[in-house]
Design a binder for these strands. Sequence first.
DNA 1: CAAATATATGAACGAGTGTTCATATGTTCA
DNA 2: TGAACATATGAACACTCGTTCATATATTTG
Lengths: 105, 105
Amino acid sequence: MKRKVSITDDEAIELAEIFRLMGDASRLRIILAALARPICVSDIAAQTKLSPSLVSHHLRLLRSARVLRAERQGKQVFYVAADQHVRSVITDMVAHVGEEAHDFD
Amino acid sequence: MKRKVSITDDEAIELAEIFRLMGDASRLRIILAALARPICVSDIAAQTKLSPSLVSHHLRLLRSARVLRAERQGKQVFYVAADQHVRSVITDMVAHVGEEAHDFD
DNA sequence: CAAATATATGAACGAGTGTTCATATGTTCA
DNA sequence: TGAACATATGAACACTCGTTCATATATTTG
């Protein structure tokens, strides 16, 4: 079963933007923290050992790119992976890194 | 069926590096060009409208990160997606972008 | 309302990155 | 071997991006 991989230039830019956001270690760890279930900002900061301010900056980017979605519950705001695609992409790549042969170039 | 999503810090950095490489529009278009079948450098340059030099620079990065793999055939060098994980990640994200609701923030 | 907690925003700086241009290396064929 | 083609490499520059610190907004509770 073949899939369509050709996309427009605008879609390529939007795609690249999402990958770019995943391409920072801090942000990736934030995404991983919010991958399975909603988690609030302070817990993300604690788990990733990043400052709440920095986490918030990154969360804003991840939210506008629709990688994560947010929901306020009282004083706290919970973030979680936007959809199954995001989860699949991350788990696929975790598998990719895990299975690599790591032979010479 | 649950999957493991927790990874070590080193793996997170390696993962982020791969995503970072996908997070540039030029490189992403290069990856897309080499996603389905091997394609030589000059054809990539023609298809993406990027200079051969720039394409070569990017290909070196994509090759060392094992996103693409290379094979020389005479004067030409053909590049193709390293494995099924890379293809899956891209097609998943294409689907993600394609299906998004695009409602307000 | 005031205090306390949780999250968000803005400015600024240092480090890293994509691109270009010039040049080098590799490969084939006459 | 030498010319022609294909790809790769190195240096340099303009620009972007992650981070920090200070400050602002939002929400709950006394």
